[in-house]
Write a protein that binds this DNA or RNA. Structure first.
Length: 405
DNA sequence: GGTACGCCTGGTTT
DNA sequence: AAAACCAGGCGTA
């Protein structure tokens, strides 16, 4: 019996338009993938997964830890796994299909977004194959607590430190050790905050420690997962507390806001990437810039923007792009990232005019929508007025009430 | 309900 | 080269 159980390379037929891992794994969704030579590596659900891609296939290989230290070889398998995998005792293909949400036809979605949004149509062709990946909710929560007022390289370092110091060791590639992400329990303890500060987490050390404590001690098992979109169930088989009514995106968002270090932006990141709410649109400074530059949101005098503005940007994009707005947002977000700037080309002016005209039409047609959407547009229109006549709408975001301990 | 300000750190710019 | 500046926000007053 070998110390490590390594599978052969297998492959899934998949075009680069349906998924481009080189973009999707680098665009600030996940902070744990490491590229070694031409292979992307990451520990997911207790195994080391390696990926590489060519024009027609996604190739994957899995390495299981030594059996004794294996945290969880899945005892209970989710329902939708193919028979072959169950018989082989390897659910990795199912994991990949879930992780990348391969049931969605991405090319069709791009077509749909392009049809309803000239700006998307202009930007997207150079950024195909970008998907929202379905990550573990707890990891997503902690990673995006780290992301506040921070940049991708440092976020990646911090997440790596969490894994190395608190997560279970799964395997090696060369000299590189690969750990899984630590559980809430592993991050609960009196020394955690001080230690994380030593490790360079800054003020986020407290947020992580407090959030881990809340989740592991004051919430029932599976609480975070219970905020998952029922139409997009999670992958890991966890027991989830029952709810009287199906949870909504807004409810999940509100519940997350009660955690320390979680504001509207982080809550939306968790909703979108960790809980399957594809309509969640995280509005950070980049998305705000995009909204101002390409979608006629007005200039503000203040550096920050208000919760009302935050909601209005999200509602606007949901109206344009529909129920998968968060997916569309990630495409434009990536196109706007500095690290991808070489991919973005100079844009012809003619399209800008087209965008403006389209925007006007959308504003008018919105009057025929229901009252909720009318209110949304009213706010947006207000913002647009500010654009023409900058006077007062500054804005800032505030959190509602947090249960202070 | 809206606004200003401090916060850790480190990569990047000046 | 040292010193600002800023980066995928949030909590507090």
């Amino acid at each position: 019996m070998p110390p490590l159980r390594v599978s052969e390379w297998r492959k899934l037929p998949l075009s680069l338009t349906e998924l481009c891992i080189n973009t999707t794994l680098r665009c600030g969704q996940s902070f744990r993938w490491q590229k070694i030579n031409d292979e992307w590596n990451c520990v997911l659900h207790g195994r080391l997964l390696s990926l590489k891609q060519d024009e027609s296939f996604l190739h994957y290989k899995v390495t299981w830890p030594k059996s004794s230290s294996s945290p969880r070889k899945p005892a209970v398998l989710p329902k939708e796994i193919g028979d072959i995998d169950i018989q082989q005792g390897d659910d990795t293909e199912a994991l990949i299909r879930h992780y990348f949400s391969l049931k969605h036809d991405l090319a069709a979605l791009y077509d749909q977004w392009s049809e309803s949004d000239p700006n998307f149509k202009k930007k997207a062709p150079k950024f195909t194959g970008i998907r929202i990946i379905s990550q573990d909710a707890w990891e997503t929560l902690v990673a995006f607590i780290c992301s506040s007022n921070n940049h991708i390289s440092r976020i990646s370092q911090m997440v790596h430190k969490l894994c190395v110091h608190y997560g279970p060791l799964i395997g090696h590639i060369g000299d590189e050790a690969f750990h899984d992400f630590p559980s809430p329990q592993a991050l609960t303890g009196k020394t955690v905050e001080a230690h994380l500060r030593e490790l360079g987490f800054g003020y986020r050390a407290k947020y992580i420690a407090k959030t881990a404590l809340i989740v592991s001690t004051t919430k029932p098992e599976g609480w975070l997962e219970s905020l998952t979109n029922p139409e997009s169930p999670g992958w890991a088989p966890v027991s989830i507390p029952v709810r009287d009514e199906p949870i909504t995106y807004k409810q999940a968002h509100e519940e997350l806001l009660l955690l320390t270090g979680v504001g509207p932006k982080v809550a939306d990141c968790v909703c979108l990437m960790g809980l399957g709410w594809s309509e969640a649109v995280p509005v950070d400074t980049h998305v705000w810039q995009i909204a101002q530059r390409d979608y006629r949101f007005g200039k503000t005098k203040t550096k920050t923007f208000s919760k009302a503005m935050y909601d209005s940007v999200g509602d606007h994009f949901r109206q344009i792009w529909g129920p998968q707005a968060g997916w569309a947002q990630s495409v434009l977000f990536t196109a706007n990232l500095k690290s991808f700037s070489e991919q973005a080309a100079a844009d012809p002016k003619s399209v800008d005019i087209e965008v403006e005209i389209k925007q006007e039409i959308e504003s008018e047609s919105s009057l025929n929508l229901n009252s909720r959407k009318r209110r949304t547009m009213a706010i947006v229109e207000q913002v647009k007025v500010e654009d023409d006549e900058p006077s007062g709408v500054t804005a800032i975001s505030r959190k509602r009430r947090k249960t202070r301990k």
